[in-house]
Design a binder for these strands. Structure first.
Lengths: 230, 230
DNA sequence: TCGAATTTGTGATAATATTAACTAAATAAC
DNA sequence: GTTATTTAGTTAATATTATCACAAATTCGA
């Protein structure tokens, strides 16, 4: 087991492993080798073994990995057993969708409160989670451990609300706004879900494929023309 | 300008450049150097120049880059000028949030229709976008060019709906379900927005920092104890 | 107009990340 | 019980990515 800092790329793959293992476990599959897992995920067995080796030895030569044990290990590595408390800031459309649909507890997080400025929804509850006024934010934090804030306010407010969060001692933010809320120097831990970045990447890949197809078609066309001439 | 295949990492950075340039442009800043941009984004100037050099020469020695010209170039690289048509499949919470809040046209996409199976919402319109029945999906595709589908159905239906989409000739999917809808061999272009993966990464980084802090505290504690003893 | 100061684009280099090869342990077959 | 097979963990090799360094082009103040 290596003890050096684990790279970003590895961390980004761990949740995928976890999801796949969950799926296999649900299917009643109890044992898997690195090559089988690699086939399922489109990764090389080497990479999988190397990734796991960052955190320990979870397999058995000649056997492979026990699915449910490995699942537990990875879940633990990712911190799902730490019972982090989250608050949602901004109960607009996205925030609402998260409260309704996203099962925080599946991933070891407790969504303990939501906050908004809209008087019409303050005091209500969605899925057992109360919506409080931003005025009560600081007081709430004094009485509750909060490990992360889910930022889902309209983008115009992203920066000012981030200031409020940091002033109140929030150290980690799950950012759904389309704005970069922390500069390179910031001590905040920020995880961005920039929808537009994602869509633009997709747009690029579509364009790339279209261009390839167009080039291929043009080549065929030229060949055909040359043949007809002859 | 290099003509080799542009790497994934580069593509993932391009949208960030675009967003920052948009911001600078809105602030009336017309000129920027790679080092200034690097400072804003936490990247090295070299990397920025190298990234851009994959696509052409957009700068000017001794001057830097013209913000709005560069913005246009990058937008074009990402395909925002191609007028891609998108359809939304699944008008639940997330789908609804996208229709209400996400401005597809800002990124060069036209959301031309949504589809769902819920009779109560079929026939309605949100933000000018009509909601149709999945029964009409195939017919709609016959009459309209559709470049990508936004998949926002409950995860139980993710795979079966993906089958329907591919059967109907959809080649690219923006996937909001928490499920991997395409294996390694699939010809589909899939861009995933796995919320849970993102949250778990955040959870890891929080845990990592907590552990570091705990280790530091323990070290100080030991030092203090040793000193007291003496 | 000139010369110093900028700043790009790029080839060379350094650093990372991935893949392959190897070793040893465990299992399965006979 | 012995042997062939499987397969993890690890070290080495390869490939990819990021950074450095510098020539060439341009700007800008004097």
């Amino acid at each position: 087991m290596k003890k050096i800092k684990v790279s970003n790329n590895v961390i980004r793959r761990m949740p995928r492993y976890l999801r796949k293992l969950d799926e296999l476990d649900a299917q009643g599959i109890s044992r898997i080798s690195s090559s089988e897992l690699g086939n399922l995920l489109g990764l090389t067995p080497s990479q999988i073994r190397q990734d796991f080796s960052c955190f320990g030895e979870f397999g058995q030569q000649g056997y492979g990995y026990n699915v449910s044990a490995l699942k537990e290990e990875i879940a633990k590595i990712l911190g799902t057993d730490r019972g982090y408390n989250a608050v949602l800031v901004g109960v607009g459309n996205i925030g609402r969708a998260l409260m309704d649909n996203f099962c925080f507890s599946d991933w070891g997080c407790n969504l303990i409160s939501a906050f908004d400025v809209d008087k019409d929804i303050i005091g209500r509850e969605i899925n057992g989670v109360p919506i409080r006024s931003m005025d009560d934010f600081s007081g709430f934090l004094a009485e509750n451990r909060v490990d992360l804030a889910v930022l889902a306010v309209p983008k115009e407010y992203a920066l000012s609300v981030t200031d409020v969060l940091t002033e109140n001692g929030i150290k980690a933010i799950w950012n759904f706004t389309n704005v970069d809320i922390a500069g390179p120097e910031s001590p905040l831990i920020v995880e961005n879900l920039h929808f537009s970045d994602s869509l633009l990447s997709l747009s690029y890949y579509i364009s790339e494929r279209n261009d390839e197809n167009a080039a291929r078609a043009a080549r065929l066309e030229r060949q055909k023309a040359a043949k007809d001439k002859k």
